[in-house]
Simulated scan of single mutants.
Amino acid sequence: MHKQRGDTIFFITARDSSKVNIVPKILEPCFDLKKAEVIFTCNQSKTPSITAKQVKVYYGDSDTDITAAKEADARPIRVLRSPLSTNKTSYKEVGTLGEAALRDSEN
């Protein structure tokens, strides 16, 4: 949908930038992108990056993603975490933070 609308797509991750070579290689085929722009916050808040890029809609799977989007005045959308994810941290019940959720995104 975003590609069809001509939206610019950024990926903002808390991962360490030492993963700079592998992350775009994973994202580009998944999202059918020629070059993925990935911003690494190295476990710092994503709010400054969301603000700097003037992001209007932000998708995230963690509570901190949702709160960062709200702090940056972006619309937060919850991506449900896959049961296969290596990230086993829990999060609040979906919608508790006032976010919409992407249906069936855990699959």
Rank of each mutant, 00 (worst) to 15 (best):
residue 30 C to V: 14
residue 75 R to V: 15
residue 16 D to A: 00
residue 2 H to P: 13
residue 53 K to M: 12
residue 59 Y to Q: 04
residue 45 S to W: 02
residue 54 Q to W: 08
residue 36 A to V: 00
residue 52 A to M: 10
residue 7 D to M: 11
residue 43 N to I: 02
residue 10 F to C: 06
residue 62 S to T: 13
residue 69 A to H: 02
residue 77 I to M: 07
residue 16 D to R: 00
residue 49 S to H: 10
residue 57 V to I: 15
residue 64 T to S: 14
residue 83 P to E: 15
residue 54 Q to A: 15
residue 54 Q to M: 11
residue 35 K to V: 09
residue 68 A to Y: 02
residue 55 V to G: 04
residue 97 L to C: 06
residue 8 T to D: 14
residue 44 Q to D: 09
residue 39 I to T: 01
residue 19 K to N: 10
residue 62 S to G: 08
residue 53 K to A: 13
residue 35 K to R: 15
residue 59 Y to S: 05
residue 16 D to S: 00
residue 51 T to I: 10
residue 98 G to H: 07
residue 98 G to F: 08
residue 10 F to H: 11
residue 32 D to T: 12
residue 91 Y to L: 12
residue 44 Q to K: 15
residue 20 V to K: 11
residue 42 C to W: 00
residue 93 E to F: 08
residue 69 A to E: 04
residue 103 R to I: 15
residue 35 K to F: 11
residue 36 A to E: 01
residue 20 V to W: 08
residue 90 S to Q: 14
residue 40 F to E: 02
residue 2 H to E: 15
residue 92 K to H: 14
residue 19 K to Y: 11
residue 97 L to Y: 03
residue 91 Y to D: 14
residue 37 E to Q: 12
residue 7 D to C: 11
residue 58 Y to D: 03
residue 72 A to H: 02
residue 75 R to L: 15
residue 74 A to T: 01
residue 94 V to S: 08
residue 46 K to G: 01
residue 9 I to M: 07
residue 56 K to E: 15
residue 10 F to Q: 03
residue 21 N to W: 02
residue 97 L to H: 04
residue 15 R to H: 03
residue 33 L to W: 05
residue 34 K to D: 05
residue 59 Y to N: 05
residue 7 D to Y: 05
residue 81 R to D: 00
residue 92 K to W: 13
residue 68 A to F: 06
